[in-house]
Design a protein around this nucleic acid. Structure first.
Lengths: 355, 355
DNA sequence: GATTGGCACTCACGAACAGGGAGTGCCAGA
DNA sequence: TCTGGCACTCCCTGTTCGTGAGTGCCAATC
């Protein structure tokens, strides 16, 4: 009974502190919330909450401020994610629908998310490892120079220029293209990589049984070229740079916190440029629908002790392709942020599904 | 004679103010620089410089601070761009040499430039308008769905998915591919666009003389498909999004100025996210070698009155493909920044030339 | 036993104030 | 034309002090 009220008090403290940005006292609390008790009672509750570590005082005779633990309890038990309004949903849908390609989808998402939450938004590009090879294209730039283009099911395009030992004619090129595509198209990139490695053949024994690979496909020129081409493809596939790509938006929102004392804008700005750090921050995302919240020191970086991360996975058909989320001060509107993150993840998933 | 010394005083003021970040007084000036005169003399010079608008006092009885006009004079007449050391040059070269593709070149440049200058670096992607079409690739995703890939001489790849009215066989596809490539490859994108428009043919008269376009190329399916494909290509070519692409790096360096009063980090952070704004900031770049400096209010944005831009064009063979530069507070090390910008532009140009 | 009103206490914050110091302008002399 | 000297200005820092919001505790009350 009193327990229940204590939680109500905690909720009220969190809500007030988030909106006013100032430590909240017992008197102000009973005025702004219909708690039905006197300030003195609230004070008693506060004392208990403080003992239990949910709130703290910046100094004696100041109001109370939620601790990380307090926010945690708030997020876990005291809040229900408020659904977006119909108007907001429509706005999200139309904003994302205009996207022309993958880069654009990601770019729009990040802008949208940062505007919805007025925080810094981070969107990871769909990772390669789950995607399949849609097509491999070879273009002759010069007699011994090829442009290799790898097109993936996510819409991502990787390209490499390779030099080959011998000049290739149109026929050779067509043969090689057919060969490579036959091996890779439709496969997950992991298995495609394997198939391609087989194709290139083991370097020690170049005189392998040609009948296995396909007798009439392998002219001298194509087999000479296949090795560097396959190498480029493998490199493009395993290139971690792609896995690590993220888009960041709304950094200007940090300026709002520039005056608060411990907000530590500096390390966050630095983190935003280190994409590896960002990915670690986003963390392992739960499946679609489950929004992960990491509060302050729960995260992996000591320097970001006063920042929280709200993130979730996205991707078609329960296949979590990547993660998106929001980074902001621990003092943030968790319900609103979680709702926005969830909504955007859903719509992005839908868009990718359609494409 | 006195005129000369006055300029020396101005130079000394700029240098001291840039390094100390504090208004500089007459006494400190004679101590730190061998001016060979007394503080009183310097004070007289300062009074003249202030009358002429080159320096100003934040308040009475404070030291002097350069005005925009003062910085301008300093940049134009009092400074020689100090060349990079051999070690720096080597570092730049090796850092940029590792790049695998265009995106990587740009990404590395922006990181390099921000580290060299400890400011915010901005690098514009090479613009489409000067580049030529290297290849157009068509890939069938489904019977009535094509992936159109446009490959440009700069290494940029644009892609679009288009729906066509009638199913296309492999032959149709090959025909169309040949047709499109014949029209566009090697052309500047402006003339390629024109050629493509001719190819699609005027919609009112579909029964144009087929002999002109090439009799056996145009099967029913290909001519039905050509229109949407060409449309997608034209869109990709004229898509201003590509022209406007820029990379930004080193935003964390802004945190260094977060405490200074009028530095106005906020609008700058906002500007960094608005790529159109950034491009306007970089401005029309002079040819390679000529570094443009815009100081404070010389720039187009009132809100960025206390930020300067140091920029230059880059691109192979006097062909200015794009612009790169640095954005920072008016109080910045102009000689060092100009040297870094110039050096990076040169090396990027060389890299692009080789590719 | 939980709640409440009362009361003394603490401490951050802002205003008012004084002293020190860096810097200036001006003037007379070299 | 330069220099030394001098009075003046004002920013900055530290101090003091009053005020007010907020707390903790206790006795009284429901």
């Amino acid at each position: 009974m009193q327990e229940e009220r204590r939680l109500a008090v905690l909720r009220a403290i969190v809500e007030d502190y988030v909106s006013t940005e100032e430590p909240v006292g017992s008197k102000a609390l009973v005025e702004r919330h219909r708690l039905g008790v006197s300030p003195a009672t609230v004070r008693n509750d506060m004392a208990v909450l403080e003992d239990e570590g949910y709130i703290a005082q910046p100094h004696t005779s100041a109001g109370r401020v939620p601790t990380d633990k307090g926010y945690r309890l708030f997020v876990d038990r005291l809040t229900t994610v408020k659904p977006m309004t119909a108007a907001e949903k429509r706005a999200i849908a139309t904003f994302l629908d205009g996207a022309v390609d993958l880069d654009d989808v990601v770019g729009r998402s990040v802008r949208l998310l940062s505007q919805l939450t007025r925080q810094v938004a981070v969107v990871q590009y769909p990772v390669l490892s789950r995607s399949t090879v849609r097509h491999v294209e070879l273009v002759a730039l010069a007699p011994t120079r090829l442009l290799v283009v790898l097109i993936l099911s996510t819409g991502r395009v990787e390209q490499r220029v390779v030099e080959v030992a011998e000049p290739m004619g149109d026929e050779d090129l067509a043969d090689l293209r057919r060969l490579v595509n036959r091996a890779a198209v439709g496969e997950l990139i992991a298995s495609a990589a394997e198939a391609l490695r087989d194709l290139a053949g083991p370097p020690p024994g170049p005189a392998e049984d040609p009948a296995v690979a396909g007798p009439e496909d392998a002219t001298r020129a194509t087999s000479a070229a296949s090795s560097p081409v396959v190498e480029a493809l493998l490199e493009a596939m395993s290139d971690h740079r792609s896995d690590e790509r993220v888009a960041v938006g709304g950094a200007a929102n940090l300026a709002r916190h520039v005056d608060s004392p411990d907000s530590a804008v500096r390390p966050l700005l630095e983190a935003l440029e280190e994409h590896v750090v960002l990915l670690k921050l986003l963390g392992e995302a739960g499946a679609d629908g489950a929004v992960t919240v990491r509060i302050g020191r729960e995260g992996p970086y000591e320097q970001l002790a006063s920042t929280s991360v709200v993130a979730t996975g996205y991707g078609p058909r329960d296949d979590v392709l990547a993660t998106l989320g929001v980074v902001g001060p621990t003092r943030m509107d968790y319900p609103g942020t979680m709702a926005a993150v969830r909504a955007v993840a859903r719509y992005v998933t839908r868009i990718l599904d359609e494409a």
